[in-house]
Design a protein around this nucleic acid. Sequence first.
DNA 1: ACAAAAGTGTTGTCTGTACACCCATGC
DNA 2: GCATGGGTGTACAGACAACACTTTTGT
Lengths: 228, 228
Amino acid sequence: MIAEYKLHHPLLLAIDCIIFGFDGEQLKALLIKRGFAPEKGKWSLMGGFVKKDESVDAAAGRILDQLTGLHDIYMEQLHCFGEVDRDPGGRVISMAYYALIKIDDYGTELMEEHQAQWFGMAEIPELVFDHKKMMEMARERLRQKVANYPIGFALLPHKFTLPQLQALYEAIYETELDKRNFTRKILSFEILQKLNEKEKETSRKGAFLYVFDKKKYKKLEKDGFKII
Amino acid sequence: MIAEYKLHHPLLLAIDCIIFGFDGEQLKALLIKRGFAPEKGKWSLMGGFVKKDESVDAAAGRILDQLTGLHDIYMEQLHCFGEVDRDPGGRVISMAYYALIKIDDYGTELMEEHQAQWFGMAEIPELVFDHKKMMEMARERLRQKVANYPIGFALLPHKFTLPQLQALYEAIYETELDKRNFTRKILSFEILQKLNEKEKETSRKGAFLYVFDKKKYKKLEKDGFKII
DNA sequence: ACAAAAGTGTTGTCTGTACACCCATGC
DNA sequence: GCATGGGTGTACAGACAACACTTTTGT
C-alpha cells in the first residue's frame, strides 16, 4: 500500500445476506442461529467478512455458498449499512446482499450445520443488530425489482405452472391478482415456453408446465418491463 | 473490538461521489483534479476515506461538503465497488454515492481549491480507476430514479419554469418530449405551485415561475409516481 | 412587423381492469 | 356425479401519444 493510504483508518467489512425462497405459498427467508459472539445463539442473517484478497461480490458469493452449497444464484447488492455503533462487537461496516434461490434445490445437511431455518415473512423472529432493517429493505427492493425485471423466476423451480407464478407475485406483493389479467400480461412478454407436460400434484385437472426462454429473458432482464 | 473480530482483515473504505448539476441545457458532473497519489493530477470523482468514528453516510456528506460547502443535499448510495485491484495504490473498497445539487448555489472558491470543473455528459474526460464505471452507473440510476420519484427538482433553482423542468428531463433522458403532454403530466401530480412571477431571461414573453409543494412532494418521494 | 419562446385542446390508440363461466380429472 | 382447481373472452375506462396554432413582448 502506498504511503498516502497508510494515514487512513482501516475497517472491518462484513457481508450480510438476505436469502429469499418460495415454497409455493409463502415468500420465505433463510436465517441462521448466530454461531459466534456477540449475540451468539440469536437469529441472524447469514454473514461473514470480506477477505484480504477477494472482491466484495466474491465474498458475498462465498458466504452464500457456505450456507447453501449453491452457485450461480441471482444475487444483488442491497445497501451498505455503516452506522458507527451498529455492531456492539466493534466497528464493522456491512454490505447487505439479497439472493433468490429455488427452495427445492437446497439440501438440508448444510442447513443443519448452520442451524438454519426458513421463516415466512409474517414469522420473522427478532434479529441481531440492524438485520431487521436489512430484511425490510430487501423486501422492498424485491418488490420494486420484481415489478420491473423478470427475476422472479429465480425463486421458482425450472418448470413451473402459471398458477405457481401468480402465487409468487401474490406472495411478494401481499395482494391478490386477477388470474385472467395476470396470465395475459405474463404471456404477452413471450418469455415463457409452454411444455406438453402437466403438474398434477395440486389439482385434479393439472396445470401446464412452463419454462422460460433464456434469450428473451436476458433482454428483458436488461431493458426491464412492467408487470405490476 | 471483541476477540472473534480480530481474526479478520481490516480494509480501507473510500467514498466516491458523483455530483450532478444542471445548467439549464446540459446535465453536468463535477470532477476534480486528483490531488494525491496514485494518479495524481488526473481527473477523478471527489472522494475520501471513511473515518474511524463516522458512519459511511456521514463520510459521504462530509466529502460532499468539503468540495461544495453545501449541506442538505439530495444524496444516495449508488453501489459498492469492491474489486481487489481496482485501486493500484492498495486494497481500497469504494462506496459510490451520487448527489444532486443546484448548480447556482455553488461557489467558486472551493472549486478552485480542488481544481474542480463541471463537465457536460458528452465531455467527460478519462477518469482514474473505475470511476468511469461509477459515472455510467450513476447516470443510469438517475434516469431510473427520476422517472419514478420527484427528485429532479433538486437539480433546479428554487424557482423554476416549466420549460426549464422539461429541459432537465430531456437532458437526463437524452430525448425530446412533447411540451403539451409534459406540462399536463407534471401538473397532474399537483406538486407545483404557480407563482405570479415570470422569468424573462430566456424569452421575450417570459415563462411563469413555479415552486414545488413540499408536503405533496414528500408523499410522492416516498410512494413514487410515473413521469416517463 | 417580426422573431422567439410560452402556452394551450382534441382525438385516436393502447393499456389496464373488472368480471363469470366451462373444462378436465380423481375420487 | 361432484368437488377442485385450471383455463379462457369481452367491454368499459383511463392513460398515453400525436398533433398546430395563438399569445406575448423586445427589438
